[in-house]
Every structure is written in structure tokens, then in C-alpha cells.
Nucleic acid binder design. Structure first.
Lengths: 137, 137
DNA sequence: GTAGATGCAAACTTTTTGCAGACTG
DNA sequence: CAGTCTGCAAAAAGTTTGCATCTAC
């Protein structure tokens, strides 16, 4: 899977690379890439392939009824618990210490083994909780 | 919103009530309720209404490309962080102490205010991590 | 009686697929 | 050259919507 490096695949990855910490809707992606001459079917086929390869995460937001994809940058990033702001949509990584403590608590209290890479914590980020200092939206 | 208590609405809620801790796909729901004489459009309209009313959570799973809904039972449940098993799909609540500690850590370390009701932690549950004692799948 | 819901069918939107030709390694 | 990937167009799925009719309160 994902054996050849084609022009279209590069364009798609490049596009995600420029929006590393954002959730992009399929419509948005199809639209943006059609300008570069990438067909709709190529986009969809690559989204599926890249999701299966673990390079993209598929998700939906509360509120609208769209499908979003987010780039899971590097190896390192894949095992991080992500924080996603419900105001501005930006994501970041949880601190290592909080991550470790959470894993331990879940194991002890709930007998649950967390899968960091698949977990996204929602809430309000630093910027957005301070309306006066320039939070988007 | 959600003003009248109709037969269809009751059937839908009843169906969710019987699957409190599961994620049900739209197809599955439409299919199951059509047997009881609930039309597809009534299902969709009610899913939207109940999601907006905060009684259902809409989500997608890694792997397939379907839309799922889960029942958010009572008031209490709505502010709980949920644990979802990626093997069997069952959900439960994180322990209060782990929840509090996580909120504190996120605030201190990451300046992030968690929204419990929207957060789902993925991983392997107790049953599924013990293959010998009857974990489903 | 009236606002709100439902069913049905049609309209849309989003995704998937078949196939012939183009491209990568 | 062989195995993949792409574009296009058609098909399939999944959702939404208009409208006349029906129901809940």
C-alpha cells in the first residue's frame, strides 16, 4: 500500500504538511487540490490509503455533519495524546507527564489500557480562553 | 426543539436505551427501526434533533467510514469523560479521581480547559485485555 | 385548532468503483 | 515491462428537503 510516489500523492501530503495541526474537511481538500489538477477520486483513494497507513486520522466534529482528516505528522506524533480546541480547531500534544499519569490512573482505576494515538481530548486552548489576547473566533 | 413525544421518537429513544453503552451506525438504526414502521427521514430528523439537544453524541470510528451515534443517558453522564474500547466498542466512565487529576494537569501543564462531555478516550477495556476470560472479539 | 412530526419521493451530497490509459520503479 | 495509480463518468450510499397529511397537546 502506498507503493509509488505519484505527483497527486505528493500534492496531497504537501497540502496536509502545510496544515499539520488542523482538521481539514474532505470537501475542502477535494476543492483545494482540484485546482492543482488532482481528481476527486484520487483524493478519496489517497485519503483512505493514508488513513490505513496511519498517516491521517479521520474524525467528525460536533455540530456539522462533515468528515475531517488530520495529518499525523511523524512517528513521534502518532503516539501522542492530542488536544483539540473546540473553538479554533487547532491541535497540540498533551504534556508527557500528564500523559503518563493518565495512563497509570486509567490502568489502576479503570483497568483500561489507553491508546494514545487514537485519543483526542477536546476543550478550550490557551489562546481561546483568553479573549483579550487574540484567540481566533 | 423536541417538543412532542411521538411514537417514532419514543421508539428511537427506546432503541438507544437498550444500547446505552454502544455506538450505533445510522444504517443500523434506520434498518432496525424500519421494522417498527419508522421512516428513514424520521430517523434522520430525530438523530439531528437529539444530537442538538445533547442526548446523542455523533462520532466516527477509525477503520470504517460510517457515522455512529451514542446515547448520552442522563445529565450526569453528559459531563463524564468516556472510555471506549477499540476492540468491543463498549463505553464506560473514567473514574472521578482520574478525571479530576487530568483536568488539573491539562490546566497546569498545557493551559487547556478540558470539555469532559466531548472527550472520548480510546483503548482496550478490562475484558478485552484478558483474552482468556471472555473478551468479545 | 395549531404547531410540530411523519411519510414518501425527489433532490443532493458524499464516496466508491469500473475501466482504459498513463506513470513509477 | 509489471504493477500501481489516475481521470472520467457512472453508480452507490448516505442525507436532506418539500409538501400534503396526520398527531400531540
Amino acid at each position: 500500500m502506498n507503493e509509488y510516489s505519484t505527483k497527486q500523492r505528493k500534492i496531497l501530503l504537501d497540502y496536509f504538511g502545510k496544515h499539520t495541526d488542523e482538521c481539514l474537511s474532505t470537501t475542502e481538500i477535494v476543492c483545494a487540490l482540484s485546482v492543482c489538477g488532482v481528481s476527486e477520486s484520487a483524493v478519496y483513494r489517497n485519503l483512505v490509503a493514508l488513513e490505513n497507513a496511519g498517516k491521517l486520522r479521520r474524525m467528525s466534529k460536533a455540530g456539522d455533519r462533515k468528515t475531517y482528516y488530520q495529518y499525523i505528522d511523524d512517528e513521534d506524533c502518532r503516539d501522542q495524546i492530542h488536544l483539540s480546541c473546540i473553538r479554533c480547531g487547532r491541535t497540540s500534544h498533551i504534556s508527557p507527564s500528564a500523559s503518563k499519569r493518565l495512563a497509570k490512573d486509567l490502568k489502576n482505576d479503570d483497568d483500561f489500557i489507553i491508546s494514545n494515538g487514537e485519543t483526542v481530548i477536546y476543550g478550550i486552548c490557551k489562546k481561546c480562553s483568553r479573549p483579550l489576547s487574540g484567540g481566533k473566533a
